[in-house]
């Protein structure tokens, strides 16, 4: 459905995108994952024809974005990072404008009603957009993007600024859109792509550093040998004890404490679960474990892992 070849985009001397290539099949939900400034929005802006690349090609359904922009733009629905709303219009006026702007040729009232019901904004359709909450504004933006039933829908950070309940609703909505459309979304939140996407493209400093199925990424994340434990006992001795446990590679403190109990982050190698050993060793000394939890892997950790993996492969 979408084919991107050797895309390069420079802003001045800086490379925002440096030789990016990938392709997306029809019906896939693909997540662009990367920190701010990695090139996610730039890629999306190029696919939608908002900006031009320095070099490289983008084909949507076999049509070149730069040679036949009108044809391609008709196939794409786009929700930019900041929803492009005219705040002095009512929701219905706005959607009606977008409908005309896209030159759709089906029954306007029926189509807009259907979309309003899908994104649950029918009850606010006569309100001015400027009076709506952030969550509703975001939904109006999504409604605008899916007007005209585009084959490809592109969402740039669709859940930013939403509250947890709205985020869950938004994820469900995107998943349901994914049944009939090809969806690309960007985010810097790892669990979000895990929850929604079939495939994840990880992008950093203008380069794709990983292109994997979500299940593969989950596997990578599964090898997270790290947990946080709160131990009540003399600080230095506890550290020495922890370090002496077999296969522990690193013990750090995050600086928080509760009375005489300190938090330690323990990293270990190998496949043996060291928690039992840890319990026995501490029990012998009489230092109680106050709490223990797995440390969630962050995007940065994932990057480090992926970059290490790549280096390993290159050797």
């Amino acid at each position: 459905m979408i084919e991107i070849n050797n895309l390069v985009r420079k802003f001045g001397d800086k490379y925002a995108l440096d030789d990016v290539s990938f392709s997306i099949k029809k019906g896939e939900i693909v997540g662009f994952l990367g920190p701010n400034g990695a090139g996610k929005s730039t890629t999306m802006n190029i696919i939608t024809g908002y900006i031009s690349p320095t070099s490289g090609t983008v084909l949507v359904d076999g049509i070149d974005v730069f040679l036949e922009p009108m044809k391609v733009k008709r196939k794409i629905g786009f929700l930019p990072e900041q929803p492009p709303l005219y705040i002095d219009m009512t929701v219905w006026e706005y959607l009606s404008f977008v409908f005309d702007l896209k030159g759709c040729d089906f029954n306007k009232k029926a189509h807009l009603t259907e979309i309003c019901e899908l994104v649950k904004i029918y009850d606010v359709k006569n309100r001015l957009i400027k009076n709506l909450s952030k969550g509703y504004k975001q939904r109006v933006g999504i409604a605008g993007a899916i007007i005209g039933n585009p084959e490809v829908i592109i969402f740039d950070e669709p859940t930013v600024g939403l509250d947890p309940k709205q985020i869950i609703e938004m994820r469900n909505l995107i998943r349901s859109l994914g049944k009939e459309h090809t969806v690309i979304l960007s985010t810097h939140i790892l669990p979000e792509v895990q929850a929604i996407c079939d495939r994840i493209l990880i992008i950093n400093e203008g380069k794709i550093i990983a292109d994997q199925k979500t299940s593969q990424i989950n596997q990578t994340l599964g090898q997270n040998n790290r947990f946080r434990v709160k131990i009540s006992g003399p600080n230095k001795e506890v550290i020495n004890l922890l370090k002496s446990i077999h296969s522990v590679t690193r013990v750090t403190q995050d600086g928080t404490r509760e009375g005489d109990a300190f938090n330690y982050i323990i990293e270990y190698s190998g496949s043996v679960d060291i928690r039992k050993m840890l319990f026995r060793a501490l029990a012998e000394k009489g230092w109680p474990i106050m709490a223990m939890e797995g440390v969630e892997i962050t995007l940065e950790d994932l990057f480090i892992k992926l970059i290490d993996e790549q280096k390993g492969e290159n050797k």
Binding site: Y50, M70, F78, Y86, L101
Partner: peptide
């Protein structure tokens, strides 16, 4: 200013 240019410039209009 309001970024609505992204809407009109990515719409199928020259």
């Amino acid at each position: 200013r309001t970024k609505t240019d992204q809407l009109i410039l990515t719409s199928p209009n020259s």
